[in-house]
């Protein structure tokens, strides 16, 4: 999104322009709720966390500086709050399980290496169409929800919400390398789930 326009929106917000607020809400609220939902138990709580995020934004708007983008700022507030809430619900393990040096993969590292080549089946044609038509939607959501929190956050922000790698690093405060490791593991897990799913439904 053009960041220049977004800075105008911030300026307008500072002087109480409702239209500016509505524009930001329309642009981001749905994303905020979806991302929050990945941390907390239910939709109502996710909605609450997103609302709190807007209140925090309004409370802090005078201190907002153009150093980070509005989007990054919003998602950072959101993920911090959602994370805290999720931990309180004892659903998640702490985000700090990402190693402090930032470049080393977290504890979830030790996954078996994937299959040997040759057993990979082609998804071309029918399987691909089915997956892209949203047939496995619930499965994908459920799979993402079982991922370790840092992976869950990364795939949600990158692939569902469409943030850039750089934005995700800023939001989650992880290194570029770590971001890609987390994304890679998350996507690999989803791919395996889809592969199993296709294998099962084929035999029906």
């Amino acid at each position: 999104m053009d960041s220049l326009r977004e800075l105008d929106l911030v300026e307008a917000l500072k002087v109480g322009d409702e239209q500016a607020f509505a524009t930001l809400v329309d642009r981001y609220h749905g994303s905020l709720v979806r991302v929050a939902r990945m941390y907390v138990r239910d939709g109502a709580t996710a909605e609450e966390v997103a609302q709190e995020t807007w209140l925090a934004v309004l409370a802090g708007i005078d201190r907002f500086e153009a150093r980070s983008s509005v989007k990054t700022w919003l998602f950072r507030i959101l993920t911090n709050r959602a994370k805290t809430r999720g931990e309180r619900e004892a659903r998640s393990i702490p985000f700090s399980s990402i190693s402090p040096d930032g470049d080393r993969p977290a504890a979830e590292a030790d996954e078996p290496i994937e299959l040997t080549p040759g057993t990979w089946r082609s998804w071309e044609g029918d399987p691909e169409e089915r997956l892209l038509a949203g047939e496995a939607r619930e499965l994908i959501l459920a799979t993402i929800e079982t991922l370790p929190p840092a992976q869950r956050a990364t795939i949600t922000l990158r692939d569902i919400e469409g943030l850039s790698a750089e934005e995700v690093c800023n939001v989650l405060e992880v290194s570029d390398t770590n971001q890609r490791v987390l994304l890679h593991r998350a996507r690999s897990t989803v791919r395996r789930a889809l592969e199993r799913y296709l294998g099962e439904t084929e035999n029906d």
Binding site: R34, W123, E128, L131, L132, G134, A136, R137, I140, L141, I144, I155, D159, I160, E161, G162, R187, V190, R191, L194
Partner: peptide
């Protein structure tokens, strides 16, 4: 690539 597009479809 299909996996990524399927995940993107959740949006």
């Amino acid at each position: 690539r299909v996996t990524i597009r399927a995940v993107q479809g959740l949006r």
